[in-house]
Nucleic acid binder design. Structure first.
Lengths: 205, 205, 205, 205
DNA sequence: AATGAATGAGTATTCATTCAT
DNA sequence: CATGAATGAATACTCATTCAT
């Protein structure tokens, strides 16, 4: 009896499992997802799954890590290396990146965090350290660069980079809850960005 | 004389139970809250709880209803009857109201909705109809009044009342997730409101 | 506020309750019938029901007693007072009586006894003493009268009066189980009776 | 060395469980039997039981199937292959088979069917199709063979094979209810068979 | 390494019975 | 007498985790 021609290499297993887990969590949420289901989706036995992830919770954390880290890395790298002015970067790459978030896997992660956060403080901490905190820092840095360039005047926004991410989070949450209801999230994000840029470029208020 | 084992207080029971349920849901989330726990907190037997609420789900819905409706009612009533100008209302009663939301029971409801929403579409619908939709309509109305008064010029904000609630939702979510991390939600909300008012009062952009 | 014109006399209550209970038991069986349901059908509060019947089991027994006794009484009385010959009685009143049993309330009682009997030995005993035993004795007596009259010869049937009731019990059980399937129970009962009479009248076997 | 906590015996489990379930049902009836009890009797965890049988109801059906089918199969096979005359077969193998039924597991199944039938119509249907209907057909066939052989004349019995099973059903029910009371079921069954054979062999009635 | 049979603690819901009013 | 609100014991079913094979 010949071996199957393509035998899955064991190095890929964890990835395949977290991918399957993400899909399941996205559909049903953490609590409602059964480990059997994840194993089946991953084409793996339950026993093997437990070989890679000690508990369902570990699996959950691995999913969050693997989904979110790459994106943030990409964004910060792009800010650090860009040659665009601050305004150009905001209107260009940043806006592009940010408009993709509502409806993306990231929004699922946010749902999971909100739902399960109270029971997984270390996960929330991880998310804060690696995503939110870094994201805010990166934006602050970008705005400071704008001030340094003379593009922007210093304003309240420099101390509240949250104003920049705000429409994204809002859009994500809105979409999560009211998929049915239409909200032009692109326009919302753009409008807020316009408001902020106008304010930052405007005469002293 | 110890409290009697049987106490007939038909009128108050539902309230007492939903109050207890809210407390429990707030602490542990819906799924992790045991019906026994709610009954115990309410000082009531499990059987009685089921006399008033057919299922745990029904109880959940009742909690949401009883917590949220009154607040929205109060706000819309206040807008309809106020004699303040639009700007005065926004800076006064509206701001006061809205600053109280992050950290209030409402934010718990939002967490519950985000977490359990996918499994309770009718609850989400109820929330949309009675809270979000009405809230947005009320704000739109207020802004229109401002335009009619000549206080504001017509702008993108008239079509995107979401910009006004946005910082509230953001603050709620932020507080839900990162209680530890400090965010001056009051300031965030105020700043966004200033931005918007300035924009609406400003020269044509 | 005037009293209702027809106030139910308390003497009738137990009857009304057992009637309601019978209806409920007949539909759903003993275990599946809730006491609330019986109380509601009887137009009485649950508390009052428990005033008359200490437990659900007591109620069950009362139902069986009240339904079955009158019928047996009627049959034995009729045998004792008849002026018909044994054969005439069998072909006449007995056959009429017996053909009515399948599908009648009695068959419900039998179902209840079979289903719940193991848990209510005293009830079964009661039924044996008052119904089956008396019924068999009555039939034996009738057959003996026939032998004494010279209508019948003595045969195995005299020692096995069960042969006479047999088709009735069979029909009852058959109808209970296979309502759907057609069985001409009247014909079955008649045929068996013919067989027996022929045998009892026949030449010595 | 004590028995290991985990034992893998996939093949035998269903059998062991249905056997345990039968014993429990026989003692207490369906409703009064707890699933825990069945699991304990089978020396198996509750969880495993649910691995093989989706619900308690499924388990019940499996019990009925596994107990009853083999017996009917044996009887019909034996009729189809016998070289005995119809009368010989009735007096021999048939009588032997049938006398064993009262008090056998089959009678328990009948109790369960009568008690739970109304709530499990499909089970009753199954029983009708596979047991009663087939049984009656087999007997009809046997009697027809007798007529064809010239052993029997055609009579009402040909259209009412129920007359042949009747004493068995009666005996089963009688034993179920009145174990205490003595009834010589063997004699009852034999007597009825004699009656029928005499009638079928007798001169035209 | 890989499987999936086996475990058992955990939980929503029902319903006979009691008792304050 | 009469009510029905209140009790709490009882039970089917689930699912994360373990381990014999």
């Amino acid at each position: 009896m010949p071996k199957p021609r393509f035998q899955r290499r064991k190095e890929d297993r964890p990835q395949e499992i977290t991918a399957a887990a993400f899909a399941a969590f996205a559909e049903k949420g953490y609590a409602a997802t059964r480990v059997d289901e994840v194993a089946k989706r991953a084409g793996v036995s339950k026993g093997l799954l437990y070989l890679y992830f000690k508990t369902k919770e570990e699996l959950f954390k691995a999913v969050v890590r693997s989904l979110v880290m790459p994106r943030v890395d990409a964004l910060t790298a792009s800010i650090d290396t860009t040659e665009l002015s601050a305004e150009e970067f905001l209107r260009g790459p940043f806006l592009d990146f940010v408009k993709k978030l509502p409806g993306s896997p990231v929004s699922v992660v946010i749902r999971l965090l909100i739902a399960e956060g109270p029971k997984h403080p270390d996960l929330v901490q991880f998310y804060w350290d690696n995503v939110v905190s870094r994201g805010l820092a990166t934006i602050t840095e970008l705005l400071e660069r704008g001030v340094a360039n003379g593009e922007f005047r210093r304003s309240a926004v420099n101390d509240m980079p949250h104003l920049v991410i705000m429409p994204v989070v809002f859009s994500v949450v809105f979409k999560l809850l009211f998929e049915e209801q239409t909200l032009d999230t692109d326009k919302l994000i753009e409008t807020q960005l316009e408001l902020l840029i106008a304010h930052m470029k405007g005469a002293a208020s």
